[in-house]
Structures are given as structure tokens and as C-alpha cells.
Computed example of a mutant assay.
Amino acid sequence: MEGIAIEQSQVEFRNCFRRSIHDGGNTSFWHDHWIGVDKLSSLFPRLYRLESNVDVTVKERVLSGSNELTLNNNWVRSPAGRVTDELYVLTGLIKSFGFEQGGGQNRWVWTLDSDGLFRVNSLASSIDAQLLGSNVSSLCTIRNNIIPKKIEIFAWRTLKKRLPVRIELDKRGIDLDSVRCPVCDDDLESVEHSIIFCKNALDIWDRVYKWWNMGSFSSFSIQEVLGDDPASNTSKFGKKVWLAVRWISAYLIWKNRNNKGRSSGYQQDRRSRNSIGSCGSQVPHLAFRVDGIVSLGR
């Protein structure tokens, strides 16, 4: 989640809280989220414009009768037309509401957990669900505990196509001399080109796949290269190791791309291949060698 603000994650953070009402004396009827899926000023905008006192509290606006709750209306004019539809829905919503029993105080409740207590884990899960959408299950392996955290973060950013490649920087109005690939200059630099289709990247992937006896490299999307591979005929841990090798390879390809200006293309290619060949040093309890798919070193 590095670099992602909550408001940019498509999660309505304010709607993750609601007001738990005992008497409603210090809860805004219109501006606090105490009933429904949002604050009432957003759910019923036409009625809100007719309100004579927008700062009215729940206690002042909702009356508790013998059998049900009722609205103590105070409009600047009588609702008419489509506004009556909003009034009908609001009245039904109020009637179905139940005040908290006992002498407690009004308080804020976290809606993502059943006990009403705020937890970072539940917020993170909600943000993941919004950002990853239908791909949540296929991206669950983002948490791979056999590689450094920085590579996990890189893999997540790559799968979400959040790398600062030149096409994306240009879209954000950043003035660049060129939007072509800084390594091969053969095409526009997108995430797919930088990590997969650049000549340097293709050479690396071809060597990695042959090294691991995975056949020739023939993937055409980031998801195919860095996503989980359920078809791989090996153990659960073997799949995790093979995924780790691909993530480390992609990370070193990207690192090589960022070092473009420091050395010649030939030197970069050689350094990338040597770095990948020694990537076992980043996963201390594994010895990477070709033996079917993976051989474990203890």
C-alpha cells in the first residue's frame, strides 16, 4: 500500500464509521453518519435543502412515541413532487431505527468489524478489495514471506501497473524528452514493455525460464509473468519459490532499467543476469538450481 492515500483507494473512509445513538443529543441529524449507508444530507439532498436548521441534532428531530419513532419536521416549505419520495423513504428509515438501550453515551462505531472497534487489518482488507477488484484471489500471493519486503511491494505495484514508466509520467503532465524505452529505444515505455517486451527483459526471461526447465518464455501480460501459476505441477512451497524467482527477476530488470544512464547496455545486461543468478542470496534458505522445478537447500 506504499504511496496510496486512503482517499485515492476508492474506499469511503468516513462511511466505515457510524454513530451509535443512545439519546442523539450530540449527534448531527444531517451531517453525522448515524443511520443508513451515508449521512442523511447525502442520501436525501432535496429534503436537506428544505431543512430550516441544518445543524439540528438527532434528539431534536426524532421523537420517540409509544410504539415507534417519528420525525419532528421543520421545513422551510412543505415538501412536494419528488421531494415527497425522499420524505417517504426517510420516514420509513427512521421508523426502523432503534436507539441503543441503557445509559451509555453516543459514540462512533467501526462498521468493518462486528465488535465496532477500529482495526487496521479490516481497513487494509477493504482497500485491497477496492483496488484489486475481481483479481483479489489471483493476487493473494503478493505476501510472499521468503523474499524481501521491498520486492513484495514492487510486485504489487507492477501487477497494478503503478510503476513510473515514461508513458504514465507523460499522462501526468511531466515533461520528458522522450516516452520511448530508455534501454532499447524500440517502443513506447509501458509497464509491459519495460518488464516483458524490452530486448533486455526478453533475454533475461528466456534465460530464467530455461534455467528453471520451464520451457521457452511466451508470456504476454504482467499477470501471466508475475501472477500465481496454479497450473505449475509442483508443491505449494515450490510454487512459492518459482513465484519468488520471477518477482526477483522482474525487480532486477526494473533496477537495471533505472541504472541505464550509468553504464553501457552490454554491461547492464551482464549485470542483470549475474544478479539473477545469485538471487539465492536474498532468499537464504533456498539454493536455486535446475532439478525439475526447484531443489530446496537446508
Rank of each mutant, 00 (worst) to 15 (best):
M1E: 12
M1S: 15
G3S: 01
A5C: 05
I6Y: 03
E7F: 10
Q8M: 06
S9P: 08
Q10Y: 05
Q10T: 04
V11L: 15
E12H: 12
E12C: 13
F13C: 06
F13R: 05
R14M: 07
I21H: 04
H22S: 08
G24A: 07
G24C: 06
N26P: 00
T27C: 15
S28H: 10
S28R: 10
D32I: 01
S41P: 03
S41N: 12
S42P: 00
L43K: 09
R46Y: 06
Y48K: 04
R49N: 11
R49H: 09
E51P: 06
S52T: 13
K59G: 06
L63P: 00
L63S: 09
G65F: 06
N67G: 05
E68S: 14
T70N: 06
N72E: 10
N73I: 14
N74E: 09
W75M: 01
V76R: 12
R77L: 05
R77I: 04
G81P: 02
V83C: 10
G92Q: 14
G92N: 15
S96C: 11
G98M: 07
F99A: 03
E100R: 12
G102W: 13
R107T: 11
R107A: 12
V109S: 11
L112G: 04
L112I: 01
N121R: 15
L123P: 01
A124N: 07
A124S: 10
S126A: 14
I127Y: 07
D128K: 15
L132K: 10
N135A: 13
S137P: 01
L139T: 04
C140G: 07
I142G: 09
R143N: 15
I146C: 06
P148N: 08
K150M: 02
K150R: 11
W156G: 06
R162F: 00
P164C: 00
V165W: 03
R166L: 15
R166I: 00
E168I: 00
L169M: 15
K171F: 01
I174C: 07
D175Y: 05
D175S: 14
S178I: 09
P182V: 13
P182M: 01
V183T: 14
V183W: 03
V183M: 13
C184W: 02
D187R: 05
I195H: 01
I195N: 01
I196Q: 03
I196P: 02
K199I: 10
I204L: 14
D206H: 12
R207Q: 08
V208N: 04
K210M: 01
K210C: 00
W211I: 02
W212V: 02
N213H: 09
M214L: 15
M214A: 15
S221F: 03
S221N: 12
A231I: 05
S232P: 00
N233E: 08
N233Q: 14
G238T: 08
G238C: 07
G238R: 08
W242D: 06
L243W: 11
A244P: 02
R246Q: 11
W247Q: 14
S249W: 02
I253S: 04
K255P: 00
K255N: 04
S263R: 15
S264V: 01
Q268C: 05
D269W: 12
R271I: 13
S272T: 15
S278A: 15
C279T: 13
Q282R: 10
P284W: 01
P284N: 03
A287R: 10
F288S: 05
R289T: 13
D291H: 13
G292R: 08
I293S: 13
V294W: 09
V294R: 07
S295N: 14
S295W: 14
L296M: 12
G297P: 02
